[in-house]
């Protein structure tokens, strides 16, 4: 019972949302601070003055990277969660990893696991959009950079949680 509950909870719920929140904190803050720093030192203006579209060069690439990397990071988070679960299980009742995986994935279908993994692409979109927006509209020197980094983390985490609520409901409606 424990392995299948763990597999379901990690892959359907915990993996995606924890990955979303971790990426919001780590990558969101990084994008927000980097773009904000470029903005206050006129580097983004310099890009624009060089007849290069800064939104395409700086924002579109980061947003695309966030969208594409989120499912992969989620898979890594899922694997880590399951490994930690197996470790905890073996402390209580020794079980080989093969037995753990076999029993955990028993009766599982792709429909149960693919949508939760791929819904994280929406989180990537949110994190990329929010962080780029906060970074590129920064004003006010070093204080503005700090504010952009904080806002990127806070807003993208908030929107990721809100999106999760909506997406879980949609997945329940359309995939179960």
């Amino acid at each position: 019972m424990f392995p299948s509950s763990l597999v379901y909870s990690v892959i359907s719920v915990m993996g995606p949302i924890i990955t979303g929140l971790m990426v919001s904190g780590r990558v969101g803050a990084g994008i927000g601070a980097q773009l904000a720093s470029m903005k206050v030192t006129e580097q983004i203006d310099a890009i624009e003055a060089s007849a290069i579209n800064p939104y395409r060069l700086l924002a579109a690439t980061r947003i695309l990277a966030c969208i594409l990397m989120m499912p992969l990071l989620t898979l890594a988070a899922d694997a880590s969660g399951l490994l930690a679960g197996w470790f905890a299980q073996t402390l209580v009742e020794p079980l080989s990893i093969h037995q753990f995986i076999t029993s955990g994935f028993q009766g599982a279908t792709f429909n149960a696991f693919l949508p939760p993994t791929f819904k994280t692409m929406a989180y990537g979109l949110i994190i990329g959009l929010v962080s780029c927006f906060e970074g590129m509209r920064t004003v006010g020197g070093a204080e503005g950079v700090g504010r952009a980094a904080t806002n990127s983390v806070v807003l993208s985490s908030l929107f990721v949680i809100l999106a999760d609520v909506v997406l879980v409901k949609l997945i329940l409606v359309f995939f179960t």
Binding site: E42, Q43, A51
Partner: peptide
């Protein structure tokens, strides 16, 4: 639009006060 503006900007060079080099 930004792209049309870009065509005009290609004919202009701008030296910023703080140089604005890409760090």
């Amino acid at each position: 639009a930004l792209d049309q503006l870009g065509e005009i900007r290609k004919k202009m060079g701008f030296l910023f006060q703080q140089s604005a080099l890409y760090d």
